[in-house]
Design a protein around this nucleic acid. Structure first.
Lengths: 337, 337
DNA sequence: TCTTAAATGACAAACGTTTGCGTATTTTTT
DNA sequence: AAAAAATACGCAAACGTTTGTCATTTAAGA
C-alpha cells in the first residue's frame, strides 16, 4: 500500500482552515496569529509532516542540486576533488549528483542530458579524454545552467574554470634535477588526445632552456597511462645509448609503473635513475624509494574552489547579473620527498 | 533575464491544439493522428523543448534518484564502491546523490534529511563510525524509501544489506602464517566503537585455535586508524619480550603506517616481521616490500550489488509487494603477494 | 442511406506548494 | 463614536505535466 504522506492540505482540512494559512503558519509569516501558528505546527509535528520538496522545486524552478561529471571516481584525484565539492555543497545547502564519463564522450553527453532533465542548478565538469567538443555543455546556457570546468579544462574561450597551473612546478622540477647535476632528463608524457593545456611539456622545455640543457626529442616518450604502455615507454628510454638519469612522469601512477619496470631491469631507483612526478598521492610517502619529488595539484582544493565559483554564478544568475567569465588558477607545489 | 523555457503549453498554443494532445503526441500515444504527431515533434525539436522533469517527478511521485551516504569519498574503498554504484545507477536510469558523513552522526542525520527532502527513491548507506542508532534511517520507512546498507552494516535485525565476509579470509590468513612457521601473530585492530560485526577478530581467534596457537591478549593492540595511533600500537607490540613475527593489520593503511614505523626501528619487513592486511589496495602492488597478503573486499562489487538490491526493492515497492529482508554476503579473498 | 465503430482530439482534474489580493474582524487613533 | 489602521485569514491562480472521460469527425459495414 502506497500510503499517502501528510500534506499541507491534510492539515488544513483537519484544522478547518485554508491551505494558504497552513503554509504561512509553517513559514512563520507575520500575518498569521500566534494561536493558529501553534496549532498548525503542533499538528504538523504529530502527523510527521515533511514538505514535499519536489513540489517546491517545481514551483520555485530551483532544485538546490548541482551535477558533477568527471571521468572516474576511482581515481584518487577525482575522488578528492568530489570530496571537496560535496563538503562545499553541504555548507551551501546544495547537494551533488554524480556521473562518471569513463572518458567516453557519448556517456558524458548522456549524463549531461540526465542532469539537464533533473534540472540541476549548475554543473561542475572535468572533461573526458575523448571530449573533442563542448557543445553539449554550451547548450546548457539556454537553460540557464552555469557550467564550471575544473582540472581538465577544455581549451576554449568564454568559459568558467578552476585549474591548477603546472608550469612553474614543471620548471622547478627541472631546476631541482639540474641542480643535482642531471643533464639527461626524460619525460613520459600523457596521451596527446587530451584537449587541455599542456603545461607539463611547456615547463619541461622552459626548464631545460633555463638550465642550458639540450632538448632531445628521444627523451620524450608517451604513455596512454596504462601499465603496459608505460612499460613500453620506459623500454624506449632505457634502450637509448645515452640513458636519462632522471625521468619526469606524467603522474604518480605512471611513475610507479615505470619504477617497477626499472626495478625489474635491475636499475636502482634514486641511484641510477631518479623520478619526479605529478599528483603527490599519499601512497608515495609510504614507498621505500619514493619519487624524489612530486607536484601537488590540490584536487580537494580545486573541488572547493570550483563549487564556490559555481554557487556564485548560480546566485548571480538569480540576481540577473551577467558575470564575466572567471578563471581561477591555483598554483601547484613541488613537494620534495 | 530569466528566459522561460519552452513548455508543452507553448507548443499547444502555437499549433492551436490542446496540451493533452501535445503530451500524448510526444509520447506516441495511439490516439493521436500521425499528422499531428509529426507536427508536434517537429515544433518541439525546433523550440528545443525538453520536458520539465521536476514537474514530472512531482506528479509521478518518483524521482529516479537514489541517495548514497558514506563516511568519506577520499577513501579508496568508498570511492570504488560509489563508482560501482554510479555505474549500476546509470544502467538503470537512476542517478545518485552523494553525501559524506565524515564519520559524524549529526552530519549523517542532516544528509538523510536533505535526501528525504529531495524525495530520493531509495538510499544506500555505509554508516559512520559514530553511528550508534539507526533511527534516522528507519524513519525513512514511513516515506516508503527503502534503505540498503553496505560494507559498514549496522548490527541490527530487519535490514537489507550487502557486505563482505572477512571471517574465512581471516582464518585463512592465520593458516597461511602458521604454515610458514609463525607462532606469535600480532593483530592491530580498529576502533571498537564501530557498530559492526567484528569478523576479523573472530577469524583471528578461530585461526589461532585451528592451528593450536595460544591466544595472547598482549598481541592484540588497537589503533584508531590514524598514523600516530598505529605507531603507538606498533610500539606496544615491539616492546613485548616475546615479539610477534607476523602482524595482521586492520587495513592496508594501518599496515603501511606500521611498516613505516617498523622500518624506522630498523626492522626488516618480510624478514623480521611479515604483515597481512585488509583491503588489497592497488598501491600495495607497487611496494618493494608489500604485505605478504591482503584481504580483498571487493568494494566496487559491493557497490554494484547494493545498488542492484536497492533497485529491486524500489521496483517491488511500486508493485506493492513486501519483500523480505535480504542480506547479500560476498566472500573476501586472501590475495597472496 | 442509416447505424455503428473507429479515430482523433479537447476538457479538466490532479500532483503539493507558494503568493498576490481581497475581506472580515479587531484594535487603535482622534 | 466614527474613521483609520492593523490583524488574521481565505480565495484562487500558478508552476508543467499526465490521464480519465467525453465529444466530434471520419470511415466502414449493412
Amino acid at each position: 500500500m502506497e500510503k499517502k504522506l501528510p500534506t499541507i492540505k491534510e492539515i488544513a482540512k483537519r484544522l478547518n482552515i485554508s491551505v494558504s494559512t497552513v503554509s504561512r503558519a509553517l513559514h512563520d509569516h507575520a500575518s498569521i496569529g500566534l494561536r493558529t501558528k501553534l496549532q498548525v505546527k503542533k499538528l504538523a509535528e504529530e502527523l510527521n509532516y515533511v514538505p514535499n520538496q519536489t513540489a517546491i522545486f517545481f514551483k520555485q524552478r530551483k532544485t538546490f542540486t548541482i551535477g558533477v561529471v568527471l571521468p572516474n571516481l576511482r581515481e584518487e584525484f577525482f575522488s578528492s576533488a568530489i570530496s571537496g565539492i560535496e563538503d562545499t555543497s553541504f555548507d551551501n545547502n546544495y547537494i551533488a549528483l554524480i556521473g562518471q564519463s569513463h572518458d567516453k564522450l557519448e556517456r558524458e553527453k548522456t549524463i549531461v542530458d540526465t542532469m539537464k532533465k533533473h534540472r540541476v542548478d549548475g554543473l561542475l565538469v572535468s572533461i573526458s579524454k575523448s571530449t573533442n567538443t563542448i557543445e553539449h555543455f554550451e547548450a546548457l546556457e539556454q537553460f540557464n545552467i552555469p557550467v564550471v570546468y575544473f582540472d581538465r579544462v577544455p581549451d576554449a574561450p568564454n568559459i568558467h574554470s578552476v585549474w591548477c597551473s603546472l608550469y612553474h612546478s614543471s620548471v622547478g622540477a627541472i631546476n631541482l634535477l639540474a641542480s643535482k647535476g642531471h643533464k639527461r632528463i626524460g619525460y613520459i608524457q600523457g596521451p596527446s588526445t587530451m584537449n587541455i593545456k599542456n603545461e607539463r611539456m611547456q615547463g619541461y622545455q622552459e626548464g631545460l632552456k633555463k638550465n642550458k640543457l639540450h632538448y632531445d626529442e628521444s627523451l620524450v616518450v608517451t604513455s596512454d597511462l596504462s601499465a603496459d604502455s608505460t612499460q613500453a615507454a620506459m623500454e624506449k628510454l632505457l634502450s637509448l645509448k645515452n640513458k636519462p638519469t632522471a625521468i619526469i612522469a606524467f603522474n604518480d601512477y605512471v611513475a610507479l609503473d615505470a619504477m617497477q619496470f626499472a626495478r625489474q631491469k635491475k636499475i636502482k631507483i634514486n641511484k641510477d635513475i631518479v623520478f619526479v612526478s605529478y599528483a603527490n598521492l599519499p601512497v608515495t610517502h609510504y614507498l621505500e624509494t619514493p619519487p624524489m619529488a612530486s607536484v601537488e595539484q590540490f584536487p580537494y582544493e580545486q573541488g572547493v574552489r570550483a563549487a564556490e565559483l559555481l554557487f556564485k554564478l548560480i546566485e548571480n544568475k538569480t540576481a540577473e547579473e551577467t558575470s564575466p567569465f572567471e578563471n581561477v588558477v591555483l598554483y601547484s607545489e613541488l613537494i620534495i620527498h
